[in-house]
């Protein structure tokens, strides 16, 4: 794979994309191999891998839920949707649960602004939940198969860093 990129250091990001596609994430042994192959300092490879949001340095969670916090979605109640998701998963944005079952991620615009707000659950896009009706939103989330709300650990308090509580 590295050879395909001419072994050139400027192919680092491309190579990391491909490694992640194969392995699901960027493990330290994989990063070490990439660094050796491209003859790059280890810290440079780690610096790049940890800079970009889409590179994962941990194994992916079993289930991944990404909520769009782009402006169009925000204006249409994505903040409330995000709060609902954080409650149910007991996670903060961009956090993975300790048991590796759930990951809650934020994205900025999935290109479905016309159907805002939107979320992606395990690769499937779900659009236009009733974000301004708390009860209907709750049943909508239940219908998606999300766990019921859990008591939040203190660290995950809801200072509403994202939007309308």
């Amino acid at each position: 794979m590295i050879r395909r990129h001419g072994g050139q250091s400027h192919g680092l990001i491309e190579v990391l994309h491909q490694v992640q596609e194969l392995d699901g994430f960027l493990s330290k042994p994989a990063l070490l191999q990439v660094a050796r192959g491209l003859r790059l300092p280890l810290s440079r490879v780690y610096g790049v891998a940890s800079f970009y949001h889409l590179f994962r340095l941990q194994p992916p969670a079993e289930h991944r839920c990404a909520v769009c916090l782009g402006t169009a979605c925000f204006v249409r109640g994505a903040g409330r949707l995000a709060v609902g998701l954080r409650r149910r998963l007991g996670l903060d944005l961009d956090q993975t649960s300790g048991d590796g079952r759930w990951a809650l991620e934020r994205v900025s615009c999935l290109g479905a602004c016309g159907q805002a707000p939107v979320l992606v659950l395990d690769g499937v896009l779900f659009t236009a939940p009733p974000a301004d009706q708390p009860q209907e939103l709750d049943s909508w989330l239940t219908a998606l198969g999300l766990p019921a709300a859990v008591a939040l650990p203190a660290a995950v308090g809801l200072p509403a860093a994202v939007g309308t509580p």
């Binding site: 330290k28 990063l31 070490l32 660094a35 300092p41 280890l42 810290s43 440079r44 490879v45 780690y46 610096g47 940890s50 800079f51």
Partner: peptide, 17 residues
């Protein structure tokens, strides 16, 4: 030996991997 890892307010200096 060193580089900057992460980004924004999470930035920190790292050695190696």
């Amino acid at each position: 030996v060193w580089d900057v890892a992460e980004r924004g307010s999470d930035c920190r200096i790292v050695a190696g991997l």
